[in-house]
Write a protein that binds this DNA or RNA. Structure first.
Lengths: 205, 205
DNA sequence: ATCGTTATTAGTCAAATGATCAACGAGACG
DNA sequence: CGTCTCGTTGATCATTTGACTAATAACGAT
């Protein structure tokens, strides 16, 4: 159960910055499992430190949670994705495949999936902002790209993009939240979903 | 905020069965919002009764939660769906459209969506069993129906069905968990998703 | 090795929370 | 109107939980 790193870091006197990092790591792991209403005592126990020490580094549980959020959310949205999606030198399907490979790799983790869902249920505004960002910076440009490449009268609407996106994200939900078996490699499923999507708008792959 | 029925039922002496029903209703509503770690005191306050009264009808908070689960899960899975999906007298698209209209009507509620997700995160086995039921009784037969109707070499796999299903369910997640705007009527989106799905397997609609 | 700094801990407090119980009072019945 | 039944309540207990503080001890500097 205890990671070796935890065992090594526990008890020992540590440089403040290192200790702070260790606490945040443990918090991410713990709150992902127990939810945002998890207790500071259980978190401390898992981190191999005393509960009081948490308050040496964070003024309140809320502040600790925010640090955990930042750790989980940060760098999970690559700045290379928007330019990739509109890169006219690559076929649209290749762009989408490459994007969703990186995207699922980034977010299909136990920690991200569960903390994101806990936070969503708790009404955290961070989630809304994150998804609005996904919509504005990723899905909307992608919709325009699909529209440009489309042969025939039909043009994709925003909801069609959400449908594609949701079908893919649901894989992570099944795996990390419902603990149901899912393919080890999601890309074949994702590729077929993208194929269906593009084919339907008259885009040959 | 307070429903009139709550106001009328509060305080007054009530028949045990009626009171029990009222408590379960309030519990479903409350736990959907606050999560399974919501407090009995807040629940009692919302129900307009005292916290002690809860324990007149339920031996423990766990028992109360189970009653709320039962209320939410029960009758949300219609026995007419399995026969509908294999009804050879109807075109496959009509069956799927009719099924997903009823299915989304049944589960796209604030209470169901959120309690289901809270329970999933909390590790409740009920969710796994529910989704395994969905897989075995709805999606697997549907996969065979699509396979039978498919023209061309490609046959749908289980993951293709999950992808379709997930894309649709994600609408409810966006609406009730992330509180993002969604279409009032989901059926147009659902129909386009089903069209994409069937078209890709060579099934004309 | 000794000292001084400070990371760390044991102990504690107040509020919150699940659970219990004696006492109250609304409603049915004669 | 009087009385009995039982649904309901206020008070209370034991435990949990976020937060605080004084005492301890680990590590670097000399």
């Amino acid at each position: 159960m205890d990671g070796t790193s935890v065992t090594r870091l526990a008890g020992r006197r540590l440089a403040p910055q290192a200790r702070r990092e260790q606490i945040i790591d443990a918090a991410v792991c713990y709150f992902a499992e127990a939810g945002l209403s998890g207790t500071t005592r259980d978190l401390a126990k898992r981190a191999g430190i005393t509960q009081a020490l948490l308050y040496q580094y964070f003024a309140s549980k809320t502040e600790l949670l925010e640090a955990a959020f930042e750790r989980v959310y940060l760098d999970r949205m690559s700045p290379t994705w928007p330019p990739l999606l509109v890169d006219q030198t690559l076929p649209l399907k290749v762009r989408m495949l490459r994007f969703y490979r990186e995207y699922t790799t980034a977010i299909f983790t136990y920690e991200w999936m569960r903390i994101f869902m806990w936070a969503g249920l708790a009404g955290e505004q961070l989630n809304r902002r994150y998804l609005e960002h996904v919509r504005d910076v990723l899905l909307t440009p992608l919709m325009h790209e699909v529209g440009k490449a489309a042969h025939g009268p039909r043009r994709p609407e925003m909801e069609d993009l959400w449908n594609l996106h949701g079908g893919i994200v649901y894989l992570g939900i099944r795996r990390h939240i419902y603990h149901l078996p899912t393919p080890d490699d999601v890309m074949p499923v994702v590729e077929r979903a993208i194929d269906r999507f593009l084919t339907d708008f008259g885009i040959v792959s």
